[in-house]
Simulated assay, not measured.
Amino acid sequence: MNAVKLIGNVGREITVKEFEGGKLATFSLATNETYLNRNKEEVTSTSWHNIVAWGKLAQSCEELLSKGKLVAIEGRLNYRQYQNKEDQTVKVMEIVAVKIEEVVKKSE
């Protein structure tokens, strides 16, 4: 089973491309992990993920998401590669989203 669930902040504005068959939205997502190091100091580590959404979901991303917004994403990992202009092979790992929801923090 290829399934991914992430909660994080949108890292940059959404990029949307239109095709005959619909839309493609791409953006980055920052997730944070906090832990204590050997000196009992709290350390936060940030990981960056490339997110891809197609069709109606891409349309929703374009309308609702913006940089910094906290979201929950469900999707699958996708690995692909292509040749760049310098004829080098570029490998890409991305998350193809199937569900994206804004996360609303409860007030204390």
Rank of each mutant, 00 (worst) to 15 (best):
L24K: 13
V16N: 01
N2F: 10
V96Y: 03
K40L: 05
N37A: 06
L6I: 03
T31L: 12
S66N: 14
Y82M: 04
Y79F: 10
Y79H: 08
S66F: 13
L57W: 01
T15Q: 10
V98I: 11
V96D: 06
M1K: 06
A30Y: 05
V43H: 03
E102C: 12
V43E: 05
L65S: 07
T44A: 14
H49Q: 06
R38T: 03
G68R: 12
I100Q: 00
A25F: 01
I14S: 03
E62S: 15
L29D: 01
R76H: 11
N39Q: 14
W48Q: 09
E94I: 07
E20H: 14
R38M: 09
V10K: 02
F27C: 09
T31V: 10
K56T: 13
N32T: 10
Q88K: 15
A58E: 02
E101A: 14
T26I: 04
T34P: 12
V52A: 08
T89S: 07
A25L: 04
T26D: 03
N2M: 05
K56H: 08
R76K: 13
N37L: 01
G75A: 02
K5F: 13
V104H: 07
E41F: 10
I100P: 02
K17Q: 13
L57A: 02
K91G: 09
E108G: 14
W54R: 04
S60M: 12
T44I: 13
G75V: 03
D87C: 06
T31D: 01
E102N: 08
E41A: 08
L77G: 13
L77C: 08
T15P: 01
V103W: 03
T44M: 13
T34L: 12
I14A: 02
W48N: 10
L77V: 08
C61Y: 00
K69R: 14
S66G: 10
E42P: 08
M93P: 05
L24M: 12
Q59P: 00
I95C: 04
K40N: 10
A58C: 10
E33S: 15
Y79A: 09
N78A: 13
S60Y: 09
E18V: 15
L6E: 03
L65D: 08
N37Y: 02
T46F: 06
E20S: 11
K17P: 04
E62P: 07
K67L: 13
C61R: 07
I14W: 00
V71I: 15
N9D: 01
I51C: 09
I14M: 06
T46N: 04
E101S: 11
E108D: 11
C61E: 01
V104Q: 09
W54K: 02
E74I: 08
N78F: 04
N84P: 02
E101I: 14
K67C: 04
G68A: 14
L57C: 03
V98W: 06
K85N: 14
S47L: 13
M1C: 04
N32G: 12
N2S: 09
V96C: 07
Q81T: 06
W54E: 00
I14V: 15
T34K: 12
A97L: 06
N32Q: 11
T89Y: 00
G21F: 11
T15E: 11
S47T: 07
G11H: 02
E33K: 12
Y35I: 00
E74L: 08
L36Y: 15
S107C: 01
Q88V: 05
S28M: 07
I95N: 03
